[in-house]
């Protein structure tokens, strides 16, 4: 029975008392530490503010960011194109094709991107005469092109797996239904399967782009002047630690923007699934 007060209105139970449990204290202390670290970072950047340094390196950082984004954009698009035949090979019933595609994917996913980049940039230098003969040396001479090449091969392997997983996540019945309506296999793929598969693939694709942006920092080691390259240059000239902190803030901003953009797109294209 509900307790009824003198006025005849049921009283709400009092709100639960929030005690200072150990968890709550730990939470406040840790959040406080993060806030302190954040404030410390801002204070450090304000006190260490050096107009000369900023004027000298800000344009370089912007150019570096441009190089990073360009590198990732080219590689991701080229990788997406290359991933289609690889994915086809992975899903093919032909044992030779499928073994080839499996080895390709296994090699590029099983070894560090840095090692692959070194193998292409420094390693192919060993074949300079042969490359000059077939007229490809101009391509493999440039660190930027080599980085694009390595990143494209790498991301194609990852994207092929994403695509395969997404296509296989669509139930068989969808293929059969389309076939019973008399649709051609390619029509089925384009009109029935891919629209459903790409919803599944969106988040992994977003993650892959973020991983590429983070991974692209390594091209600084093979002398590509990307954001990380400019940062290393700035640090080696000025020995000012804030150069690294600026780069960290820029990378964080880019990655967070992309993450939220992926979330937004996902919410938008799954509107019809929300009940």
């Amino acid at each position: 029975m509900t307790a009824v007060s003198a006025s005849g209105i049921a009283e709400l139970p009092p709100p639960p008392v929030r005690r200072w449990t150990r968890e709550r204290i730990a939470g406040h202390v840790l959040t406080g530490l993060w806030a302190l670290a954040g404030a410390g970072l801002v204070l450090y950047l304000v006190f260490a503010w050096n107009p000369e340094l900023f004027a000298r390196w800000a344009p370089a950082y912007l150019r570096g960011l441009g190089v990073t984004l360009l590198l990732v954009a080219i590689s991701v698009v080229a990788g997406a194109i290359l991933s289609i035949p690889v994915c086809y090979g992975r899903m093919s019933r032909n044992p030779v094709l499928s073994a080839l595609a499996f080895c390709y994917v296994y090699f590029f996913r099983g070894t560090p991107l840095l090692a692959q980049t070194f193998l292409i940039y420094y390693g192919l230098g060993e074949f300079r005469p042969q490359l000059q003969e077939i007229g490809l040396w101009w391509f493999f001479r440039e660190a930027f092109y080599c980085a694009v090449f390595a990143f494209t091969l790498n991301t194609a392997a990852y994207q092929a797996e994403i695509l395969r997983g997404a296509i296989q996540s669509v139930p068989r019945g969808q293929w059969e239904g389309a076939a019973s309506l008399g649709l051609h296999r390619l029509q089925t793929l384009g009109k029935i399967i891919l629209p459903q598969a790409l919803i599944v693939a969106l988040r992994p694709y977003g993650n892959e782009i973020i991983l590429m942006i983070k991974g692209s920092a390594i091209v600084a080691i093979i002398t590509v002047p990307d954001l990380m390259g400019q940062t290393r240059l700035a640090y080696s000239r000025s020995f000012d630690f804030q150069t690294y902190l600026w780069a960290a803030l820029i990378y964080l901003a880019v990655v967070e923007t992309l993450r939220h953009a992926t979330d937004w797109i996902e919410r938008r294209i799954t509107r019809h699934l929300v009940r």
Binding site: F241, Y251, R259
Partner: peptide
């Protein structure tokens, strides 16, 4: 969100 290489430099330096 940070590139691994940058985290490494941040820690190292």
């Amino acid at each position: 969100g940070l590139p691994e290489l940058l985290t490494l430099f941040l820690v190292y330096f």
